[in-house]
């Protein structure tokens, strides 16, 4: 027991460090990327290329006083940021970074990640409700209706991939795609199964992960122009910091899941030297495209957002599920 317990503790510590470092430096990357797209320098004073900005921001956030406004529900108000961050970190434990680097591989890995994500979604509700602030409340209502709407096509797309791979084990899903880019789930050539809609299901999954992580153009939950700052309006210091870190941790998880399900995980596109570097390269390319999309497209409206999910993405993903099931039966 002691050995396995030690393993779990070490895995959790590495997961926390990875999540925190990623959160810190993705904020830097986001600000630099935004600045580049908007033709301004961005953070460039502290250190080379402004690389010391994230630790300084972190110190500033931690040194601030933790303010609890009068009239809030204290327990829920304090619990919400922790509930946002904890599931995000726990999800890292089940993600396989390569065939050797994985915290704890489980048969139900993909289900567990969605289970933790659903707890994370509830933290937004608690934050908005406990703030006793109508903007926070409206924001969390939006965030939750959005999360529920986009979870459906996302899960249906995941079922499609799980049917092709024949396993819910994340490592097994990657192992089914090894050996060059033409084996990846995103392309329709996979192993006798000529499903022409795989690229579309990749796009559905990618769109849903944008929406699930509350990223622009789907960031209706924190639309500054309408809702002040959304569900974290009343939060300062590290409470706000935790929400911020959870958002970036969720982005990393979304990119990792997209890589594992569709882009072959740690597999090399040309079939040599598979390893963790390919995985990291793929997730950072995806995250760069997240940032690119955020600063390129304007925000949609809440109706447009919900219509996109219920009227377009869900029927399309259901059709894709049926087609894949049929193809699996025929070939």
């Amino acid at each position: 027991m002691s050995l396995t317990l030690l393993n779990v503790i070490v895995a959790v510590i590495i997961a926390i460090a990875f999540a925190a470092l990623n959160a810190a430096y993705l904020v830097w990357a986001e600000r630099r990327g935004a600045a580049r797209i908007q033709r301004r320098p961005g953070p460039n004073i502290n250190g080379p290329f402004g690389l010391f900005q994230p630790p300084l921001d972190g110190v500033k956030l931690m040194a601030k006083q933790l303010l609890i406004p009068g009239g809030v529900d204290k327990v829920l108000f304090m619990a919400a940021p922790v509930l946002a961050m904890a599931p995000a970190i726990t999800s890292f434990v089940t993600l396989p970074f390569s065939d050797l680097i994985v915290g704890h591989n489980m048969h139900i890995g993909i289900l567990l990640i969605f289970a933790f994500a659903s707890i994370g979604g509830m933290s937004l509700l608690f934050a908005g409700w406990s703030s006793r602030n109508k903007y926070s409340m409206m924001s969390s209502v939006r965030a939750v209706s959005q999360a529920i709407a986009y979870e459906i096509p996302m899960l249906i797309t995941v079922i499609t991939v799980v049917m092709i791979a024949g396993t819910t084990d994340l490592m097994g899903i990657v192992k089914g795609q090894m050996g060059g880019f033409w084996h990846w789930n995103i392309f329709p050539f996979k192993a006798g199964l000529f499903n022409p809609l795989m690229l579309m299901s990749f796009l559905i999954f990618f769109t849903c992960s944008l929406a699930e992580t509350n990223r622009a153009p789907f960031d209706l939950g924190e639309a500054e122009s309408e809702l002040v700052a959304g569900f974290h309006t009343e939060y300062g210091s590290m409470g706000f910091g935790l929400f911020f870190m959870a958002e970036y941790a969720n982005i990393v998880i979304g990119a990792s899941l997209t890589t594992i399900l569709f882009l072959g995980g740690w597999d090399c596109p040309f079939g040599f030297f598979p390893g963790v570097w390919w995985f990291l390269l793929k997730i950072y390319l995806l995250i760069a495209s997240f940032i690119w999309i955020r600063w390129t497209f304007p925000r949609t409206t809440i109706y447009g957002l919900l219509n996109l999910s219920w009227k377009i993405l869900i029927p399309l993903s259901l059709f894709n599920l049926l087609l894949t099931a049929g193809l699996l039966k025929v070939f």
Binding site: L111, F114, A115, S118, I119, G121, M122, A147
Partner: peptide, 17 residues
């Protein structure tokens, strides 16, 4: 996993909503 996804996630979110 199903208990977390269905009950703790979806159903409780709707009730709280």
């Amino acid at each position: 996993a199903v208990q977390l996804i269905v009950y703790a996630g979806a159903i409780m979110s709707l009730i709280i909503f």
